[in-house]
Amino acid sequence: MFAQVLFSGFALGSIYGLVALGFAVVFKATQVFNFAQGALAVCGAYFAVTAISILGLPFPLAILAMLAASALLGVIIHMTLIQPLSGRSMLAIIMVTIALSIVIRAVIEIIYGPQGRVLSTPLPTGVFIVGDLRMPKLHLTAAATSWVCMAAFGAFFRFTRVGLLMRATADRHEAAMAAGVNVNLMNRLAWAIGSVLAGIGGLFLGQLQIVSTELETIGLLALPAVVIGGLQSIPGAIVGGLLVGMIEQFSSSYISPKSTDIAIYGFLLLILLFRPWGLLGDQETGRV
């Protein structure tokens, strides 16, 4: 049982890590603690449903359409909601993302109906069995894709010119402006990336379960994940996501399925009290 739980913790944790990475990119760039990250994951799942089931696009094209729609959504959110609030109080910014998630949920339920939808993709189903360990292929695909995405974005930030400028913007807004960086464009890009990563996460979560607005709660696990990992740390978001996946699966299997929330948020509270800068963050830059 231990290995089985470890496996599902790893697979789900990888998806949470992906969504959390998107969250951290947005937070680092624009200092927005995005309570709508879960809603963005839901949007990704519904974009996929629209492209595959409703428009009937071939799978690769459908994925491209879903990625483009997610990116566009991120950009629109930044332009219409986040930019006008720059320099305003934390409550205003937190609340606007919460209100956004309420609106997104309501609009999706109006358009698609409150009941869930099945997402049918040509992704491999079936199970690998190694000894006692059952590894659903879908979980493996989700984990592998998540890690490829995380590595790709890691490389993007590290090695490309735009990645460099985005890091500079996140490091120090005003200095980046002074150095000639188009800060607004970089922030918009950060929102696009954040939304795309949430969308991919939503696609897999919807595939593993069923596509409904309830996925938002799962997507929102990115919040404790980033704080546990360290708000200012990109690797921290991934590690935090993995940890949250593990905590969720282990508490559900060894304590009770109802205990997952308290295990995750209890751990979050301990981190907040004793190491608020997170596991991988450093104390100096971790202050918010």
Binding site: D261, Y265, L268, V288
Partner: peptide, 14 residues
């Protein structure tokens, strides 16, 4: 700040 806000969220869940 933000950390305190999150602690109220954790308190809620508990």
């Amino acid at each position: 700040g933000l950390y305190f806000v999150l602690s109220t969220l954790a308190a809620h869940h508990i």
